[in-house]
Nucleic acid binder design. Structure first.
Length: 568
DNA sequence: GCCGTTTTCGGCCCGACTGTTTTCAGTCG
């Protein structure tokens, strides 16, 4: 699938045009095109073949031509044309805070800078400050920006940011009286990675809230601390922004700072067409404020139901909301069990009983113990004989532990030839069978997964693409083929909720649902402290538009068992 | 470059902040 390659090219075209001072709306059109392509679940090549490319809003004749050319020849003349005479390293400097296209173009034109090193030198020599419109302070800011640019890490995983923001909010509330406080930004939308952390609050004295924030123990550097906005770097190098607003604008501000930008632009365009104006202070008709206090009010004033944060990506949610046809999304409380956790029997840290008790504390009705199998020797995979011993232990624990059912599950390896690691005789004794690929990622992954799904005792495929966020690309797998066979064989696909996986991802989940595939959300927990990650999986499911009825482990135990035996 | 229950041409989201300016351009979210 070449979607992302083309999205990256469009994104670069946008940056270069911006640098060149091209009409900003044209620049924006390419930015939007890039976003659309990287969000697109379908293969862009299939769309071209079916001649449906320009049916996508935001992709017109021009970009369609560029896409077709790239797919045909592997080159895009539009990109080749705009990049002439523009060093790649120069454009990368747009990533420096405070360095926009105008300033960069000025420095390039007047002082001939071409690289990061050039920029450093002219900043130190004082030449940059002497340019028209520049000055000492601007250069000082750019220096800070450059420092951060060099030191800043990649986006951080949601699974790291999420506990961190809860910790910060708790610490803040202990220190100062805050009326309302809530995470905003991509974290509230449960994106799999976040760049920085946004928090919104209301309270009597904004300045005192900001100063309390700036003096929290985890803060290592204060970038700004004013009346309404504070910005700090915390341990680990992540930037955290706190904004304090009037209670009357809390809803509008929360809506605004939650984003996404594309979602907000879409809303504002729509509002404008209806003679309304939306800002972070409220919804207005002329001078008259119609809403602002609560988020639901803001959407209502626009004639819409409250759109859940996880859907706010401009992936069709506004259009569906206009028709009041948004799905009722699955919630954390709907999850009745986890079907894929490990214990000491393979590479987990706790006993069956400890895991089961922890699961019961979360309010689960069942827990599926799913150890690795012999092929996954590095992970302590267990033989059929050992598995039978574990079953005896499960039976014993079950005798003294009431209120939760411990299910015999397994994470069976899909071998290089697509066969499974346990015999059917063992597999058919399972309550719930998960099959996963753990080795030979490049070896015909699609074929192997399709073959595994034909086995009547495989109820779900674990982490279907094998990707690790920011560490490893997934297998080369044809997901459309997997979805088709999954639907036909009534095999569920997993959202592996372990923070580093989130696999399937949001976009895949939405496609899977459209293809009629059922989903299970499992943590793959190896430790009782990892069971909470279910919330990350539920967030991913919600971002994939799933309702309770789409998720297998929202079923009560009796119906789950019936469901999982249906294949036989 | 894209798009059309105002439009095939002329628009395209909104506001704050900052610093360099004597009225505003650039950047950011």
């Amino acid at each position: 699938m070449k979607n992302q390659e083309i999205a990256d090219l469009f994104s670069r075209v946008a940056d270069i045009l911006d640098f060149k001072g091209e009409n900003s709306f044209r620049v924006n059109a390419y930015r939007r095109g890039a976003l659309i392509l990287s969000d697109l679940a379908e293969d862009v090549e299939a769309l071209v073949e079916e001649g449906r490319l320009t049916e996508i809003p935001g992709i017109g004749e021009g970009m369609a031509r560029n896409i077709e050319e790239y797919l045909g020849t592997g080159r895009m003349s539009k990109y080749e044309e705009v990049r002439k005479g523009v060093p790649e390293e120069l454009i990368a400097l747009l990533g420096v805070q405070g360095m926009g296209p105008k300033t960069l173009a000025l420095a390039h034109r007047e002082l001939g800078i071409k690289s990061l090193n050039d920029l450093r030198m002219i900043m130190d020599s004082g030449e940059l400050a002497s340019l028209p419109g520049m000055g000492e302070k601007k250069v000082a800011n750019l220096k800070k920006g450059l420092e951060h640019f060099l030191a800043s890490k990649e986006r951080i995983s949601l699974g790291v940011a999420y506990p961190l923001v809860l910790e910060i909010i708790e610490a803040l509330q202990k220190k100062v009286k805050v009326q309302k406080v809530c995470p905003a930004g991509s974290l509230r939308r449960m994106r799999e990675t976040v760049g920085d952390i946004d928090i919104l609050a209301t309270g009597r004295n904004g300045a005192s809230i900001i100063s309390a924030f700036a003096s929290l123990p985890m803060v290592t550097q204060v970038l700004a601390a004013g009346e309404t906005k504070g910005s700090c770097i915390v341990e680990g190098g992540t930037q955290v922004d706190l904004r304090v607003v009037e209670p009357g604008s809390y809803g509008a501000a929360l809506q605004y700072f939650t984003g996404s930008k594309a979602h907000n632009v879409k809303l504002r365009e729509m509002a404008r067409a209806n003679g309304l104006k939306v800002s972070e202070y409220g919804v207005f008709r002329g001078e008259k404020k119609l809403a602002g206090k609560a988020e639901a009010e803001v959407y209502k004033a626009l004639g819409l139901p409250l759109i859940p944060p996880e859907l706010r990506e401009d992936r069709g949610e506004v259009e569906m909301a206009v028709e009041w046809k948004l799905p009722s999304l699955v919630e954390n409380k709907d999850i009745l069990g986890d079907l894929h956790v490990h214990t000491k029997w393979s590479d987990g840290h706790h006993s069956v009983e400890e895991m089961a008790r922890a699961a019961k504390e979360r309010g689960y009705k069942y827990l599926g113990i799913a150890e690795h199998t012999p092929t996954a020797a590095y992970a302590g995979g267990i033989s059929e004989a050992e598995l039978k011993k574990e079953w005896r232990e499960i039976a014993e624990v079950q005798k003294r532990l009431k209120g939760i059912r411990i299910l015999r599950s397994a994470e069976v390896d899909i071998r290089a030839d697509g066969s499974l690691d346990y015999s059917d005789e063992i597999l058919k004794e399972l309550d719930f069978g998960v099959a996963s690929i753990h080795s030979g990622f490049k070896k015909r992954a699609t074929e192997r997964i399709l073959k595994a799904m034909q086995n009547p005792y495989v109820d779900a495929i674990g982490h279907p693409t094998g990707r690790l966020i920011s560490r490893r690309e997934g297998y080369e797998v044809d997901l459309e083929a997997v979805f088709k066979t999954a639907a036909a064989t009534d095999t569920a696909l997993e959202i592996n909720a372990y923070y580093d996986r989130l696999d399937l991802n949001d976009v895949h989940v939405k496609r899977a649902k459209e293809a009629g595939v059922k989903i299970t959300i499992n943590t793959d927990a190896h430790h009782i402290d990892q069971l909470w990650m279910m919330e990350l999986g539920v967030g991913t499911a919600r971002r994939g538009w799933l309702a309770k009825g789409d998720v297998l482990n929202c079923l009560p135990p009796e119906r789950l068992r019936k469901k999982s035996r249906k294949k036989v």
